[in-house]
């Protein structure tokens, strides 16, 4: 049994938010630099250069990378051997989210009700997903999700007979329909299988994976490669103004499903893919 204070997790949340709003992950930076070299559209190249200029300026002057500082989405993988001590974990997380959004001069984008829409003025609540995993570590994965790209995400419940081609067509069609709106070059998280909420969770979780990391599942890896190729041939390009850089990454997660179903969720992230993982 290992004791972990919920305040320790809260501090990780605070520190991470104060970092990821201003500093892009290295894999994203490297990918942008690489695409500036190989992008064949002049406009696309110019836009990618502006994206680079933006992350340099953001980091140097601590101006948020994007004005949409997002909704905080947190995955907590809690080892079965861990005992959490202190105030209730979700209260601690929300307290730290609120403090970071105040201290960091970050935008408060959360409304209390999806219908009456009064701003909570502290960017809470965060979305928190808990998983119990083997071991005695706690892994905190934190992302800030902008809604320009969230709004372009889609879900479908295909028929089993639609098969692989049905899945591929749906993902490509989602990207086509989204066009310039989600701020391409985008990153795609694709959840295939399970139930509707399982597919959505896998799609969101897939966005956290490192770009260019190789999927351990052979079937998923081939789907990723096929999708990358088809999507980057659409000529959507940076901000939809043409070019070969439409997706920076496609990440697929799969799960067993029912004999009658084939759920698919495509979660889109913008080029400003702000996230971080910490293991306690």
């Amino acid at each position: 049994m290992r004791l972990i204070q919920t305040d320790e997790i809260g501090k990780v949340v605070y520190d991470s938010l104060m970092e990821i709003n201003f500093v892009l992950p290295n894999d994203v930076k490297e990918k942008i630099i690489n695409q500036i070299e190989i992008e064949n559209s002049a406009r696309g190249k110019n836009i990618l250069s502006m994206i680079k200029e933006n992350y340099l300026l953001s980091e140097a002057k601590r101006i948020p990378l994007c004005q949409d500082t997002g909704m905080a989405v947190i995955f907590l993988d809690i080892g079965q051997g861990v005992l959490l001590e202190g105030d209730y974990i979700e209260d601690v997380i929300n307290r730290n989210v609120a403090k970071a959004y105040l201290d960091g001069y970050l935008r408060k984008s959360i409304v209390d009700s999806p219908l009456t829409r009064k701003n909570t003025n502290n960017n809470t609540p965060a979305i928190v997903h808990y998983n119990i995993v083997p071991g005695d570590d706690v892994k905190i994965s934190i992302a800030i999700k902008g809604f320009g790209s969230e709004n372009m995400s889609r879900m479908v419940l295909l028929k089993p007979s639609d098969g692989l081609e049905g899945v591929l067509d749906f993902v490509v069609d989602t990207v086509k329909k989204a066009g310039p709106n989600p701020c391409p070059p985008m990153i795609l998280g694709v959840g295939i299988g399970g139930t509707i909420e399982k597919a959505a969770l896998m799609a969101k979780h897939a966005l956290l994976r490192e770009l260019d990391s190789v999927n351990e599942d052979e079937e998923a890896r081939i789907i990723e490669e096929t999708l990358m190729e088809r999507i980057n041939s659409l000529n959507i390009g940076p901000m939809g103004m043409g070019g070969i850089t439409t997706a920076l990454g496609v990440h697929v997660e799969m799960f067993p499903t029912h004999i009658a179903g084939l759920p698919v969720v495509v979660n889109i992230n913008c080029h400003s893919s702000r996230h971080k993982e910490i293991i306690l």
Binding site: I47, M50, I51, E53, N54, L57, S58, K61, I63, P64, L65, C66, Q67, D68, G146, G148, C183, M239, C270, H271, S272
Partner: peptide, 10 residues
Amino acid sequence: IGGIGALISN
């Protein structure tokens, strides 16, 4: 251009 709010603020 979206996602370059720091640069635009200049």
